[in-house]
Design a protein around this nucleic acid. Structure first.
Length: 498
RNA sequence: GCGCUCGUGGUAUAGUGGUAGAACUUAGGCUUCCCAAGCCUAAGACCCGGGUUCGAUUCCCGGCGGGCGCACCA
């Protein structure tokens, strides 16, 4: 069978090899926006997370884990309740759906629409006899479309599934202030599920209704944002910046400049924020994306979220979906803590510097990764077809299986026994190893290539005599002879070093 | 959500108003071969519900799901 180097081959691989299945539950026809990771996908995801945790600990981040359901007041305070509920109206005839504020602004350019209540919007539609631009029929009653998933807890308490993990981290502020003994900036992250009731989810795991976020937060003083030590260690690092003023000129090629140059030219205002952009880029690079597939794109002021002062997306270029955001870096200012202080009636004004009595509410800088998008873009960017061979070029430490073990032939007892012994030895050292004796040796190599297994060990006749085996490398397909008692050492080293 | 379009084994598909054919994959066996060889055998599918019909996977309606366009995407 001819293996073509195209996106269909990729999509079928992702399913066949157990990376991503869905929409789930498949046997009931599927539920749009919900997907499942099969064994290979779960393994890959766990390795992604384990790399994150390792690196974040290096950068001094603490991990927390909060509930995914929070009472209504939290979302009122965070601003999500207001911003995630859209008033919509649909045409009574052609059923086209409009966002109420947008259509009213279009039809009534002279009326001030912003800030009107649902009742006032309804009144306007009725008194002005507003009609659908598409078919000239009357527009219907205002309805609410809520991007947050609502639920009831206990007897009758309204609550929402969190649409982001960040907010739940902010609610820990006074606990963290204590725990970290005011060693600002306090660096925290949280990994977990978030839920959004997308109107029409598409693009597979790129836009799901239940998805995984890994969000880093820096609680930091306003002055400290300009003087952060960590910035000075990395300020000469070069990143691919695409600021919004450049985008206006229709230029989509990033400008590769250092953090310092970005600050000096005014593209970035705060050194601490520049440091956050650096962290996002550094972590992304650790997964092995090629340079040309990464860019940092700044939001225009109009595109920014309600809480953000400056916002950038770290994007990866994909074959199937174009540039995809895998990480959002936001300067959330003191917006969140100020709001939660107000709604919870706690005091978040603290003195951050013992030398003065000045009190302030800390600023928050946020680096928000979408884990599912990392998993997807990583699979896509590692997918490679050459000479009838599918090869998933994952970094060795990310591959679902680190190594596979084969007896060259299965009907020779001694070879088979030795192969099983080698397999056992690897497992005893907790190396993710897969044993396979079915089919020709070439077929077994191909199976592992599709899963991204970086190393294959083959036991042959020679092994019986000199206790050596062949190690075969996924990308080069080259083979080397190594001694059995060196296998675990060699593999372990290769898993760390690359 | 609207419009168009599509939905057949694990994957990608052929085909039909009388329940489906091949490929790859998978499993068992032979072969023992270091890069998808070959041979034998086996398993496995018409998205769901309703209607028309003697009979529906096929036609019609509805639902669910996918793709594309519009809208939406803090």
């Amino acid at each position: 069978m001819k293996i073509e180097d195209n996106i269909d081959t990729f999509n079928s691989l992702v399913k066949r090899r157990g990376f991503i299945w869905g929409p789930s539950p498949e046997i009931y026809g599927g539920f749009a926006g919900f997907y499942t990771y099969g064994p290979a996908g779960s393994a890959l995801k766990n390795k992604i997370l384990s790399l994150f945790r390792k690196e974040l600990s290096y950068f001094g981040f603490l991990e927390v884990e909060c509930p995914t359901i929070m009472p209504e007041i939290v979302w009122e305070a965070s601003g999500h309740l207001e911003r995630f509920i859209d008033y919509i109206t649909r045409c009574t005839e052609c059923k086209l759906l409009y966002r109420a504020d947008k259509i009213l602004k279009e039809l009534l350019p002279d009326v001030m629409i912003d800030g009107l209540s649902k009742e006032e919007l309804n009144k306007l539609i009725k008194t002005k006899n507003l009609k659908c631009p598409n078919c000239e029929s009357l527009l219907g009653e205002i309805e609410e479309y809520n991007l947050m998933l609502k639920t009831n807890v206990g007897d009758n308490n309204v609550a929402y599934l969190r649409p982001e993990t960040a907010t739940s981290t902010y609610l820990l502020f006074n606990r963290l202030d204590n725990y970290a003994r005011k060693q600002y900036p306090i660096k925290v992250f949280q990994y977990g599920k978030a839920h959004r009731n997308e109107i029409s989810p598409r693009q597979g795991v790129i836009r799901m209704r239940a998805f995984d976020q890994l969000e880093l937060q820096l609680f930091i003083g306003k002055e400290q944002e300009m003087t952060l030590e960590e910035y000075f260690d990395v300020k000469s690092e070069k990143l691919p910046f695409l600021d919004w003023k450049t985008q206006i000129k229709n230029i989509n090629k990033p400008n590769i400049i250092s953090l310092e140059e970005a600050i000096n030219s005014g593209v970035i205002q705060k050194p601490a924020f520049a440091y956050c952009l650096y962290i996002s880029y550094f972590l992304t690079k650790r997964f092995g994306y090629k340079d040309e597939l990464i860019r940092l794109r700044q939001h225009s002021p109009a595109e920014r979220a309600h809480y953000a002062d400056d916002a950038w997306d770290l994007e990866i270029e994909t074959r199937q979906y174009g540039w995809i955001e895998i990480c959002g870096i936001h300067d959330r200012t003191d917006y969140d803590l100020r709001r939660h202080q107000e709604f919870s009636k706690q005091n978040f004004e603290i003195s951050m510097d013992t030398r003065s009595n000045k009190k302030e509410i800390p600023q928050i800088l946020e680096i928000a990764f979408g884990i599912d998008r990392i998993l997807y873009t990583l699979l896509e960017s590692c997918f490679d077809v050459k000479e009838e061979r599918i090869n998933l070029k994952l970094k060795p430490f990310l591959a679902p299986y680190s190594v596979a073990v084969f007896p060259l032939i299965k009907n020779k007892k001694e070879i088979r026994d030795l192969a099983k012994e080698v397999q056992k030895k690897l497992l005893n050292n907790r190396i993710a190893s897969f044993y396979d004796e079915a089919g020709s040796i070439g077929k077994r190599y191909r199976r592992q290539d599709e899963l991204g297994t970086p190393f294959c060990i083959t036991i042959d006749y020679e092994s019986l005599e000199d206790q050596s085996v062949t190690i075969r490398y996924r990308d080069s397909m080259e083979q080397e002879r190594i001694k059995i008692d060196k296998i675990t050492d060699i593999i372990s080293k290769k898993l760390i070093s690359i």
